[in-house]
Design a protein around this nucleic acid. Structure first.
Lengths: 152, 152
DNA sequence: TATTGTTATACTCTATAACTATA
DNA sequence: TATAGTTATAGAGTATAACAATA
């Protein structure tokens, strides 16, 4: 007796399928994170960049792209917005490559981002044991690999 | 030694966080499903509607919305496209409510959707035991609930 | 008046193609 | 030529507000 089925009176063949539950949960979690970051006036992608730059000062945009498996084109507006907000700065290094750093303001905000992220994470895993968390992350990585590659 | 870190040369503080792995995996899985449905000229949302209508002939759009936790406004283009393709039809029932059905063509395509969905699902869980699958789905549901509600 | 459906709109993430600049 | 970054654009999902139609 699943509550969703009762409420809607419908049989939902998708319930219980991993792909469907995955999407539903990821959407809910993303929305929650978005809410948590709103007071900081940051989007998820922007907050991720701050976290990465804090741990990897001086790395380039393409470094970040590879790390996040993002498209270089999609990094541009993110970097631009953070630069506009005075949170990060760039220095040319080699070729067209740009080295990225947090400004003092960026470092200060990063501390708040870290806190917000940790709270968010704690909230979504609060009813899972450490062991369960580890298992889920491991399973997600396996699934991700099998979904990504056309491994015959 | 995680491969992503080696490749990029970056330390990615997000790796291992449930929220991040969730988003990454969900994105990859969604892309894979999208590819799997492309030969049928269906998007994920459209395929989901076919599945639901096959099991709940005669239900209304708002029934579907509640079942999928979707916004009514977002159902309109989906329903329109499937009607335009001759896959579903509607009958007025009560108030403004419309009863939705699969056409013969829709039923035929639904069979192919079911097969494609099953293959997709099999692909993404192929390296997980039944037990693991169950655990992951259960964990996802718990996470989803805790992310959704502002449960103090 | 409450429910159902519709329109219009906007934001985010993701993706691609075509381009510029530099070693 | 290969790499890094940029521009423009497009598609898909999700969200809200305002509206129309019907019991």
């Amino acid at each position: 007796m699943k509550s969703a089925e009762i409420a809607a009176g419908l049989s939902v063949p998708l319930e219980g399928m991993l792909g469907f539950e995955l999407r539903r949960t990821a959407t809910a979690v993303a929305a929650a994170l978005s809410d948590a970051l709103e007071p900081l006036d940051l989007r998820t992608s922007e907050a991720s960049l701050l976290l990465i730059l804090a741990e990897n000062p001086g790395c380039t945009q393409s470094d970040v792209c590879r790390a996040l498996r993002a498209q270089p084109a999609n990094m541009v507006p993110i970097v631009n917005r953070l630069m506009g907000a005075g949170l990060i700065e760039r220095e040319p290094i080699e070729g067209r490559a740009m080295s990225l750093f947090l400004t003092r303001k960026g470092k200060a905000l990063h501390e708040r981002v870290k806190k917000a992220m940790a709270q968010h994470e704690a909230r979504i895993v609060k009813r899972l044991s450490k062991e369960q968390q580890k298992q889920v992350v491991e399973a997600l990585r396996i699934i991700c690999k099998d979904a990504c590659c056309t491994d015959s």
